[in-house]
Amino acid sequence: MRRANVVSGMVLAALGALVLLVVNPWQIEEGPAGMMSPRLVPNLSMVVVMVLSILLVVQNLRAADRPEDAGSPIPRRELVAFAKIAAVFGLAIALYIHVSPLAAGGVLMVGGFLALGERRPLVIVLLTGGLLGAVWLLFYRLLGTAIV
Rank of each mutant, 00 (worst) to 15 (best):
L21Y: 00
I97K: 14
G16H: 06
G117R: 07
G90M: 12
V125E: 14
L132E: 02
F139G: 01
V23N: 12
L21C: 05
A87G: 11
E78F: 15
P101I: 15
A94K: 12
F89Y: 12
W26S: 08
G111C: 08
L126S: 02
L131I: 11
M35E: 13
E78C: 11
A63V: 07
E68G: 03
E118P: 00
L79I: 15
V23E: 14
T128D: 00
I85G: 03
P25Q: 12
V99A: 03
G90H: 08
A33N: 08
T128Q: 01
L21N: 01
V148R: 03
V58S: 10
M1C: 07
M35N: 07
G16D: 09
G112T: 02
Y96M: 12
V19H: 08
P101A: 14
L95T: 00
Y140V: 08
G31A: 04
G117S: 05
A17C: 07
G111F: 02
G16R: 04
A33Y: 10
G129C: 11
T128V: 04
A4K: 12
L91W: 07
Y140H: 07
V6D: 00
M109H: 10
R119N: 04
V49F: 04
P25F: 08
V41Q: 15
R62I: 13
V19R: 01
P32L: 14
L127H: 05
G129W: 07
N24R: 09
I28A: 09
A87D: 06
N5D: 15
D65N: 05
P25T: 10
M50L: 15
T145H: 04
V99F: 03
I97F: 12
I124T: 06
V123M: 02
A92R: 00
L132K: 02
F113R: 04
A14Q: 01
V41N: 13
M36I: 08
V6P: 05
L95A: 11
A94L: 14
S72M: 13
T128L: 02
Y140N: 11
M35A: 08
N43K: 12
L40Q: 08
L122A: 09
L15P: 02
G105E: 01
G90V: 12
R2P: 07
S100E: 02
